[in-house]
Amino acid sequence: MLALSLVAVATAVQLLLWAAPGDPIDLLPNGEELREQLSVEWGLDQPIAVRVLSYLAQASTGNLGISLAYRPGMPVIDVLLQPALTSLGLLSGAVVLSLAWGTALAVWTRGQRRQSRRLVRVLSVAPVFLLAHIGVHGINELTFSLIEAGNIARPAWFALPAEASLVRSTLAIVLLAVGSGSLAEIHQEVEQALLTIRRSGFVDAARSRGEPTTLLIARHLLIPVASLAAARTGFLLGGLVILEKVLLINGAGAILWQAALLRDVPVALGITLFSAATVCLARLAADAVRIGLDPRLRGGSR
């Protein structure tokens, strides 16, 4: 299933990229002079179908090709390794944080206190890139005024986002976890699941027996939370592309942006495959959690 998904993604993305106007040779000042030579070298002289199939065959052996324009000559794997780890770190942090906050808020609101729900929606409604601009500008201006006034020494992370620091990464994770409706949606869905579980028969039964229900509810809540995490992974990956660009974080999203501008198809493809694999693996993990927690799913077909 994972392999099929990756093949479908690689094929679709290639068709889109090759259909876009321009190619990496166009961006060289002497591109037309070099077109014949580079077309052969980079396989651009082949029909699109052949290019797509060749790439699939090559990628199936673990070879994602060579960067054409972003880092000319460098294997795509080497280009992507560190940025992919950076992005995975941010993504995991954002998924965990959004779920933790969403769940905590759901437990707190439990279908009541409408004012707080409205607050969450307002906070969460702004797109990630806008929050990032406001966040960076606000933090920088405040810090700078404190430095200028002699109230604080210049912090090592200043000024955002140019300095790589824990502050910048934390800001990225928080914004990704909250922005573009993430927190509001997770809050709403977890709250709904929580209410459903609390009203279910097995919780009533446990309650009538005088048994504690907290662990029971938490255990059953894990299943929808895991599914939610998997569903949000793809969405957050999209936000990451913009966020990394705004916060000058050299992750896979920022490189995808550059690769697309430079028509560096192998690098762009490598990143989309990485993204697709991440989403697929998140879904697999969610399924594993469901199977682990729900005995009905382990019993086989009856």
Partner: peptide, 12 residues
């Protein structure tokens, strides 16, 4: 237009 489209649309 972006750089690649510029080259493709205008130059080529």
């Amino acid at each position: 237009v972006g750089a690649a489209e510029w080259k493709s649309k205008v130059w080529n």
